[in-house]
Simulated assay, not measured.
Amino acid sequence: MKKALIVGLNNYPGCKLAWCDNDAIAMKELIESNGDGSPNFEVIPITDSCTKSNLESAIRKLFADDADIALLYFSGHGADADGGYLCTTDFSENDYGVRMTDILEIVNNSRCKNKVIILDCCFAAKMGESVMLNNNSLLGDGVTIIAASQSWQTSGENSSIQHGIFTELLIQGLKGGAADIGGNITPASLYSFVDQSLGAWQQRPVFKTNISQFLPLRTIQPKVPKSILRKISTYFENPTDEFKLDPSYEYTNAPDVEHSVTEPYADVEHVNVFKELQLFESVGLVEPVGTDHMYFAAMENRSCKLTALGLHYWKLSKDRRF
């Protein structure tokens, strides 16, 4: 069971934001289903306005049971006072909203197996700022925090994209930019995608976690289907082997194609194998030997071999790990 509370607040008296509701709507639409349309998270959205009492109540309800993943996403104002706040739209000078330390206490005491907090607000890394205190972790088991900015930084919106800068990258990552070869998008891969996409002079995201194994936040159609990926250890019996190619593996090398052809002509079985090898190459698992392209490796009677990443998946295939 996966469930999520998705919050995007704009309607702050005297300091309105423009696109936080857009952030929340886009995040909800993405995580409530996987790339193949199958159900993913059950989502409760809160947009535009929310009181402190209602937000705190919703957070407690989110983390109240033993869900496989409970995800809190917040887009809105953040305050750096008193350990940090997620600001609610009924904030006052003496009470900005829900304290980050109070949220972390709720999360740390939760029975949910994986607790993920994603914050697109100013001073977002105030959440769990001191990861260790007296050699005791402030992050409970299964807790992951992805923050849009450092604890002293603001988080920006972009009117041209009508989203927060950080959330726009989250959206791209969840659509597939952060997916691994198997189509899985985890908190770690999502953070890595965002971190690499932001420049050195922009707000810097922060990743904190106390977890031994990530469950995917979303899955998409894998670039290489698992049924094909499993074959990598059959094409390469040993990890140092090279797979010998010849022109029969190239489907365009056929008499009915109007260009120069050479024997042996395209063979259906070889062509199907070559297409799968080219799939492996497209995701960095295989590389041609002695040339830059698989096409020329075939036409010039060369070969292909496993890359370092290919060796990793060869071992997984050999050990039947997927």
Rank of each mutant, 00 (worst) to 15 (best):
E281K: 12
D141F: 05
E42G: 12
E105Y: 10
S160E: 15
E93W: 03
A297H: 06
A18P: 02
D66F: 09
T186S: 12
D80I: 00
S260W: 14
I228H: 08
V98Q: 01
I44C: 03
Y73D: 01
T262E: 14
L316P: 07
I46N: 02
D80A: 14
S38F: 04
K2F: 11
P288S: 09
D36M: 00
K223R: 13
D241V: 02
G8R: 12
D241A: 07
R321I: 14
A58L: 06
G140V: 02
L169A: 01
G76C: 12
N11G: 07
D48W: 02
C121S: 13
T234E: 13
R99K: 15
I165N: 00
K115G: 08
K113L: 12
I106D: 02
A124V: 04
E157H: 09
S159A: 14
L30I: 04
E105I: 12
S130K: 12
W201D: 14
A26L: 10
D102T: 15
W201S: 14
A254C: 08
A254P: 01
I181R: 06
E276N: 11
G14C: 09
A266W: 05
L71K: 11
R60C: 09
A24F: 06
S160D: 15
T144P: 05
N210D: 07
G140A: 03
I171G: 02
I145N: 01
K231D: 09
K115A: 08
A24E: 04
V194L: 00
F123G: 08
Y12P: 06
Y249K: 04
S155W: 04
P216V: 13
D120M: 03
E287Y: 01
K3S: 10
